[in-house]
Design a binder for these strands. Structure first.
Length: 102
DNA sequence: GGTGTGACGTCGA
DNA sequence: TTCGACGCCACAC
């Protein structure tokens, strides 16, 4: 048996994880998916698209530091206000990547 | 019920 | 380094 009522759904975990990313830091879809227990990072994108309006979605980037074309402009603009500067259309994950362990 | 789509990741050339 | 193709899972129609 699996008493799901004792555990948050992956959907809620994703929201909680993203909400826990501090300003000035960024995370990747793959990281969020792994922490949330999801098997596919696409689910993170899907959740954000449907229910991410009240989350710091701009702190979530692809594995290479880029964002989706239709969001890239606003994404980088919001990050810039938090002190995250991008080189062209790519953010230096090595510099801004959020480490949940530290 | 099956099909198409998507805010992704990884591998090979 | 860049590009294309495939895999992956949940949701809308």
């Amino acid at each position: 048996m699996a008493p799901q009522s004792q555990e948050p759904t992956p959907h809620e975990r994703v929201r909680d994880i993203i909400a826990g990313v501090p300003a000035g830091r960024v995370a990747t879809y793959g990281d969020v998916a792994a922490i949330a227990g999801l098997r596919s990072p696409r689910q993170v994108g899907w959740i954000l698209r449907e229910d991410g309006s009240d989350l710091p979605w701009h702190r979530i980037l692809r594995a290479d530091g880029t964002a989706a074309p239709q969001l890239r402009t606003e994404q980088l603009q919001l990050l810039r206000t938090e002190g995250v500067l991008a080189q062209g259309q790519k953010v230096s994950l090595r510099r801004y990547r959020w480490d949940p362990d530290g």
